[in-house]
Amino acid sequence: MPDNSPPSVTAVTVRVVYLARLREAFGRSGESLAIAADAPDVAAVLATLRARDGVWARELAAGRAVRIAVNHQLVAADSPVREGDEVALLPPVTGG
């Protein structure tokens, strides 16, 4: 391989789940999403969705209170995602 080859980009496919207000805003409860990034993480998932513009960019804009759970565990934006992970987007919770 020549030395000037581009850095390797890992592509992983995750299952994204939209809950409550976000499910209604996006008009779907979830989808399969391919993420291409050097090191696929939660931030890359959000960036991929924001790039669709419109309601996606508005609902997921920086500063909007959206929490992320990977495989049912709340995580930070720099948490890695792996092939087959379930990545859920949660509006602020209001149970009890």
Binding site: L19, A20, A69, A88, V93, T94, G95
Partner: peptide
């Protein structure tokens, strides 16, 4: 338990 449930358990009211 109630205080944490209100902020960490994934329930939503409409």
């Amino acid at each position: 338990i109630m205080d944490y449930l209100k902020t960490r358990a994934p329930f939503w009211k409409k």
